[in-house]
Design a binder for these strands. Structure first.
Length: 420
DNA sequence: TCTGGGGTCCTAGGACCC
DNA sequence: TCTGGGGTCCTAGGACCC
């Protein structure tokens, strides 16, 4: 049996933990640059704020309904996520952290327990120790656990735990779940399946397997089998190393100037190098891209990218920044209003495989220890305490974040003060 | 003024090899 | 009339996830 633990309206709930005045009120959290709505409390959903709503179009609506608006605060959400996952790990070592707000638990060996009671206990403990409300779905496959979780959120709000085990329980939940709510069935497949008169998860379980294989390929077939109770996905306790790493941002204001673009691209390359070092990998290809704002129809549009093959795979920040700037010089065109830039590294292999190369460059060991020292300083003293000068200092291209809450749990200077 | 960011897997088709 | 058979690797594009 798998349990899927999913935090309710996670970002909105994080904002509420340290700001209890927000309890019971509609609140939304915006994407980077305060662009669109990416999280909503139940109250915000109830007054009709849609997911992805552009903030500037909804200003009046927010005011009218007294919706509290927050910029996203990833330092806070990341730390709260760690706390939730730590609590969950106490209940079983068989845990897969699936995303910032979700974890699968493998409860197969818990045969002597009342699983529903055990999960209710998990839910209460997480709430008690972190302040975050969660819902838990329990079922024989991951896809069914996802479905059970949705069901718990929709129909068993007060209990927050839903178990699917007997044929009757399964049939009832499948019949009452829309096909588009199934994990693995997105917008395109929903349209396609509805056209063929498959409207619920139960309808889908009656579909012909060859037909599903042909039209939704093997991933669709796996989804079908999982819904019918045959597990195709297992618990992944150690996440596999990433095959591609991307750092990109939209700018807070349009950028015309080459120098600012260069600062941003160097910064993105440096972030990619940090992420590579964190998973002990090196990359052999770096791609840099820039583009204008497609929403500004009055502006001339320009999209371009350049791939650079690195002479030796690397995770050294200045080597990646150098390559990124080289690429940027090739694709930069004067006179455009740039809105976004990014760096993607691919051709990722373990650091070990390069170190063992018999043609190893003596610079490699030296650079590696420089990077280790920089990482250590930045980890303890704060991000970018030591950085490449080409990354700049005043960050004119930085994000807009006008309504960011304090980093309650990760910055001494922003700790909550309680006045009695 | 203003519209996010970061991933995965699968398939088809082209280039190339013997 | 008629023109082999069996592979690999890479990339672009489309689907999905959070």
């Amino acid at each position: 049996m798998f349990a899927l633990v999913d935090c309710n309206n996670f970002y909105a709930s994080c904002e509420r933990v340290f700001n209890p005045k927000m309890e019971g009120k509609p609140i939304v959290v915006l994407s980077n640059n305060d662009g669109c709505v990416i999280a909503r409390s139940n109250e915000a959903k109830a007054v009709g704020v849609p997911m992805g709503a552009p903030a500037f179009e909804y200003e009046e609506m927010f005011a009218k309904n007294k919706v509290q608006v927050f910029s996203s605060n990833y330092a806070l959400y990341g730390d709260m996520s760690d706390r939730v996952m730590q609590v969950l790990s106490r209940f079983t070592p068989e845990i897969e952290i699936y995303s910032i707000d979700e974890a699968f638990l493998d409860l197969t060996t818990f045969t002597l327990y009342d699983i529903e009671k055990y999960c209710a206990n998990i839910r209460n403990t997480v709430k008690q120790e972190t302040g975050i409300p969660v819902s838990i779905g329990i079922a024989p496959t991951k896809t069914l656990a996802k479905l059970a979780n949705k069901y718990a959120k929709k129909r068993k709000k007060d209990i927050g735990v839903h178990l699917l085990r007997t044929t009757e329980q399964l049939k009832e939940a499948l019949t009452n779940s829309e096909i588009g709510d199934v994990w693995g069935i997105g917008g395109q497949y929903t349209k396609f399946l509805k056209k063929h008169n498959i409207n619920t998860a139960f309808d889908f379980t009656l579909a012909n397997e060859q037909w599903v294989r042909k039209n939704l390929n093997v991933t669709g077939l796996k989804t079908l089998k999982e819904l019918k109770g045959t597990p195709c996905y297992h618990l992944e306790q150690t996440p596999p190393a990433k095959k591609g790493i991307c750092t990109s941002r939209s700018f807070g204001a349009l950028v015309k100037d080459y120098g600012l673009l260069e600062e941003s691209v160097a910064t993105f390359a440096s972030r990619c190098s940090e992420k590579l070092r964190k998973q002990h990998s090196v990359a052999s290809v770096l791609q840099v891209f820039v583009h204008t704002n497609p929403f500004r129809e009055q502006d001339a549009q320009y999209f371009n990218s350049k791939s650079i093959t690195l002479p030796v795979p690397t995770n050294v920040s200045f080597e990646l920044a150098k390559a990124a700037i080289m690429g940027l010089k090739i694709i930069y065109r004067k006179g455009y209003n740039f809105k976004k830039a990014g760096v993607i590294v691919t051709g990722i292999v373990p650091e070990q495989s390069v170190q063992l190369n018999i043609f190893e460059n003596p610079k490699f060991a030296k650079n590696k220890s420089v990077m280790q020292s920089i990482d250590k300083i930045n980890r303890t003293m704060g991000r970018d305490k030591v950085r490449l000068s080409v990354m700049g200092f005043d960050r004119k291209w930085k994000l807009r974040q006008e309504k960011k809450s304090p980093c309650y749990t990760t910055r001494w200077s922003e700790l909550l003060t309680i006045t009695v």
